[in-house]
Write a protein that binds this DNA or RNA. Sequence first.
DNA 1: CGAAGTGTTGACTATCGTCAAGATCCGTGG
DNA 2: CCACGGATCTTGACGATAGTCAACACTTCG
Lengths: 227, 227
Amino acid sequence: MNKSLKVNSRDKALLVRTPFMSALSNEALLKMLNAATISSLPARHVVFREGTPADHFYCVLGGYVRLYRLNREGREADIRVCGPGDTFAECQIFGDDTYRFNAQTAENTTFARFDTRTVRTLAEQEPDIAKAIMACLSQHLLTTMDCVANDRLHTAQQRVAEYLLKNCPVSGGPASLRLPFQKNLLAGMLGLAPEALSRAFSSLRRIGVTVRGRVVQIGDVRALRDI
Amino acid sequence: MNKSLKVNSRDKALLVRTPFMSALSNEALLKMLNAATISSLPARHVVFREGTPADHFYCVLGGYVRLYRLNREGREADIRVCGPGDTFAECQIFGDDTYRFNAQTAENTTFARFDTRTVRTLAEQEPDIAKAIMACLSQHLLTTMDCVANDRLHTAQQRVAEYLLKNCPVSGGPASLRLPFQKNLLAGMLGLAPEALSRAFSSLRRIGVTVRGRVVQIGDVRALRDI
DNA sequence: CGAAGTGTTGACTATCGTCAAGATCCGTGG
DNA sequence: CCACGGATCTTGACGATAGTCAACACTTCG
């Protein structure tokens, strides 16, 4: 069920803590909050489809959204996975007028929705908002370039190791972390088939990585870094 | 030899026609031109290195620049190839303060160089400039996302076919085009080893694509589209 | 004409995708 | 609380794709 309502206090608290919104002045923040609508969608629900008019962009408050594209045979490839605090489709504010990829919830997800036209106008009035958009776009561009370089330079094993390191609380010795979502989604995020992720994990066993459900135990973080 | 001078009339003409600059108001345009420096570098010359302070961003006027990253063993992977009219490292204006990749000229190249601090200030004063930066960042983000999806969905053959179609003057029947740079560079752009590009070209022969030096003849553009 | 640089081809190998079967996890309902 | 059933994950076998190395052909330019 898609319940759509004005920003309530809990959602608002999440929204203003977002990297995108946290640097705004009070005035700019108010204007943006006014333009926001909160929605929730159940798992595996389409948010928008490639080729449809791009009239909104989004900010995830809870849950995960998968951005992906299809080839002619219908195979899907993930482009990005957005979690709490991430914005997506902001490239449509001053970009193309149709979505260039599909967006689907990976699990039950709450997000803020902004009308692109409204925000375009606000960005022209409030330098703060323009600045926030530029910072956000820059950040995304950098991480997406990272992604291209990663895909082209590293093997499945290395990409998994890198993901673990990036999400690891400590920088040396033993560590433990809990995957925030299903392995399916992680596989797509890393540009792998689920089977390849599974194999990568089991090949990491020989350097002391054990996986039980969503919990990953790392024997020595430094050993991981040498992969 | 790195000759660095104020904008001359021919370079200026190129610069103001750039997608990035062409939408600016007269006043904004003047301020930007004032902040620009023109430089030329010979082929295979490093423009900047990953990890160094990101104090400038660039706009290519003539020639080609390769953005790439290295893995630990020193293997290079191209992230983007920038030609005339393209800007690069604009993600550093409101982003990180160190370059996250290397930039190298592929051939003798002329470009405009802008100080990021100066432009950051200008963007806060002139909404036009902020708008141009946002449009530019959005465009790049979209093409980079395209690149990720492409790498993950398509084979070498398909990527080459797609490149040819994108740079093809006509939409059906026979066509001919001239590659604007060495095959080496094209290979990197498509995320391939040079040998793989060569093989992809020769596998396209059976559907009527012939290559002689930089000239590519396409028997039937429609047949290419079916790959 | 020669030499360096660029592109092509062949042989081999590593990596990863696909398909299929089996194991495990997890939520639901009895 | 347990049992069931569907979803998710793992493992194995196989094949396709593309990377690497090496030798050779072809360009290009001094």
